[in-house]
Nucleic acid binder design. Structure first.
Lengths: 197, 197
DNA sequence: CAACGTTATGTACGCTGGTACACATGGGAT
DNA sequence: ATCCCATGTGTACCAGCGTACATAACGTTG
């Protein structure tokens, strides 16, 4: 088999290399050539598997999304436990995520935020939102879940963009306001709003 | 006077051109050459006034920040009115911002988010956070104000990144949860947390 | 008025980028 | 066995980039 032909692993190695490149040099450092060098494949190989860089970014973003989902599935079992404090659990998980090697976090946000200017990435970014939302929605209504995800994004961005430190108690408190707001005074008026996106 | 020498307007025109370029072609389209062409000045002029592109971006981000602050000062008088519903007012303003020409919004977020990978921009991004926070803090405590700004960022990003529509009632509701959470049951425990960044 | 240094300009260099394309390779259909 | 085409590879363009630098304009200073 396969001196070289029919190498399905090749495509995957290119995606992995792309993720490493973005992590190390930012999205601006991503090019067919840098990826080819990192993956140790010829230039033509990257252009063959991914016609454009956008294609490659889509694949990379998808993969990081899946990676995050897996982490949550493993470390975040308590998220589904009705007895646990949802806000505290989310704040704790986020803290773990931010306090480790921030390269991974920056990488993920960079790919995620790239959707702002690259319509090709938007469907993947939307998937991400829905995934996180669905995760939280096991404990709340879907609208609250989406808002909770938005709050998390906002908190993380403030930390990452200003270079500040992550304050877990602050995060827990604000997440709790969003989540617990769904229980109390709701009935009122505009609950019909925002059922979908 | 002055056929050409000593032209203080020159620097400003370059900044304006940079903002137009980022708005039109994204941050990747920003280069000494594209800016020079847009501003109708020679290449050497841009490199003379701004040694690096980061310098230029800092100037551009500062200017957009000031532009936003001015808009809020003009259209957002009700923000300071103790009688007005703060959450509703913020949701309305954001709606106006998002429903117009999104180029401006995308531009501002793109510059803002660029701070993720460009440490040079972080102080300016931090200034932005503080400005918005201070604006809201006239009606709430500073910590709640900061969280409200984070919530706004999160909501806007979900709209911009997924290509969805802005739901003003949803925004009002979630902002209200953050803001009103500061009034009620607080006293409890950890309010000492997160007094600064 | 003359010398000088800051401000401004044009051009040239080396590098990296995306893309195109001609060529190898090998499995599958006939 | 033979042909064909999807797969894989190397190379050669051309455009755009930041940068450096030699030169020009002009206010200032002596």
């Amino acid at each position: 088999m396969a001196g070289r032909r029919y190498d399905p692993e090749r495509r995957q190695r290119i995606i992995d290399a792309a993720i490493r490149v973005v992590g190390a040099k930012g999205i601006n450092g991503l090019s067919h050539r840098t990826v080819a060098a990192e993956a140790d494949v010829p230039l033509g190989s990257t252009t063959y598997h991914f016609k454009t860089l956008d294609d490659l970014m889509v694949a990379a973003l998808r993969q990081t999304n899946e990676g995050f989902a897996k982490v949550v599935r493993e470390h975040g079992g308590a998220l589904a436990d009705p007895g646990a404090d949802l806000a505290a659990e989310l704040a704790r998980l986020t803290g773990e995520w931010l306090d480790g090697d921030r390269t991974g976090v920056e990488l993920e946000y960079e790919l995620y935020l790239a959707a702002l200017r690259r319509p090709a990435l938007r469907p993947v970014a939307a998937e991400w939102c829905e995934e996180v939302g669905a995760l939280i929605a096991r404990r709340t209504d879907p609208v609250t879940a989406r808002a909770t995800a938005a709050m998390l994004d906002g908190i993380c961005l403030q930390v990452l963009l200003t270079g500040g430190a992550y304050d877990e108690e602050y995060a827990r408190e604000m997440l709790a306001r969003v989540i617990e707001g769904a229980e109390g005074d709701r009935a009122g008026k505009g609950s019909g709003a925002a059922t979908g996106r």
